[in-house]
Amino acid sequence: MARQPDLKIDLRGTPCPMNWVKTKLRLEDMDAGQCLEVLLDDGEPIRSVPRSVKAEGHKIVEVTPLDGGFRLLIEAVS
């Protein structure tokens, strides 16, 4: 029962902290319960963005390893 994202952003190649800024802005525009798919590079992006997502109170519902990165599926909170 894989959830379908309502919106997708590919942030591979986008450095910190812009990757988090873009993620945060998208999540803020979404309705509670909607899902955002984010693609991130390994390394610093994956060290910081998931932590920030958690700290903001959004819910990471699915994580899939990619070649050289990760796909996060994030459920927005209001």
């Binding site: 390994d42 994956i46 060290r47 998931p50 994580v63 390893p65 990760f70």
Partner: peptide
Amino acid sequence: CTQCTLCISV
């Protein structure tokens, strides 16, 4: 654990 491997990656 969902075996997502995020922890191993960081």
